[in-house]
């Protein structure tokens, strides 16, 4: 083990030093991280997400292009570090969908479910459901139901369902809400391993490009340049 650690040291040290946003650009380091992440994934993640990372009901498929909290490497890294709905951790990702049992009548819930299904062409549009959706759901899921990553609100208009898109499952979701939990890894894994896992998940095919604004390296230089020019 000690010999293996010595051999891994350059990769681990380089990973600890590099900002995660810049990892993909450093192809050699990135490939090493993906390989390391694949191994770490088998130890820490397969229990919920499966060995092929395809997930199951309630556990997201990490291969696809549908992300609750964002699919660029920095967002994935944040989710891995801080987890989802970890009550003891202030920086954790939190999203609390209300349970509508008692708030809406069963008939109203049925029409909302009908409307949600219609967003992906699975049911006919209904006016009552659309109205109820606009008042109760659109604040998080958006008027068009396409979700909002800031709240981890899923896109309801696409072909991917975390718990299921059939009537019974959707009714259950609306009635009782869903509160899936992912552990945070910052208290269990070292920084390099978390970056490796982020790289691996990112590499599975659904990874999104890092938004230009989120790449930090260029930003200070610009600010310095602005300061030098006497601009605010």
């Amino acid at each position: 083990m000690q010999a293996a650690d010595v051999k891994r040291a350059p990769l681990v040290n380089a990973l600890a030093a590099i900002p995660v946003e810049q990892l993909v650009a450093d192809q050699k380091l990135y490939q090493g991280a993906v390989a390391g992440g694949a191994a770490a994934f088998k130890v820490h993640c397969v229990q919920c997400h499966g060995s092929g990372a395809i997930g199951s009901k309630g556990y997201p498929n990490l291969n696809d292009d549908d992300w609750l909290w964002g699919g660029d490497i920095a967002a994935i890294h944040y989710t891995l570090t801080h987890g989802i709905r970890n009550p003891d951790h202030p920086e954790t990702r939190v999203s609390a969908m209300p349970a509508f049992d008692g708030v809406l009548t069963p008939a109203e819930i049925a029409s909302v479910v009908g409307h949600v299904q219609s967003l992906s062409g699975k049911a006919k549009p209904n006016a009552k459901g659309a109205e109820l959706f606009a008042t109760n759901c659109a604040s998080c899921h958006g008027v068009d139901g396409k979700g909002l990553r800031e709240f981890g609100a899923p896109n309801l208009a696409d072909g991917i369902w975390l718990y299921g898109g059939d009537k019974a499952t959707l009714t259950e979701t609306v009635k009782y809400s869903r509160q899936g939990v992912m552990p945070r890894w910052n208290d269990k894994l070292d920084a390099a391993t978390i970056k490796m896992l982020a790289a691996y998940v990112y590499s599975l095919g659904g990874g999104e490009a890092t938004p230009a604004a989120a790449v930090p390296a260029a930003a200070p230089a610009t600010m310095e340049a602005k300061a030098a020019n006497g601009q605010p």
Partner: peptide
């Protein structure tokens, strides 16, 4: 083979 295919949000299918 793991996974054989991935269903994407627009309904299309991805194979790796």
């Amino acid at each position: 083979r793991n996974p054989l295919y991935v269903q994407l949000s627009d309904g299309s299918i991805r194979n790796n």
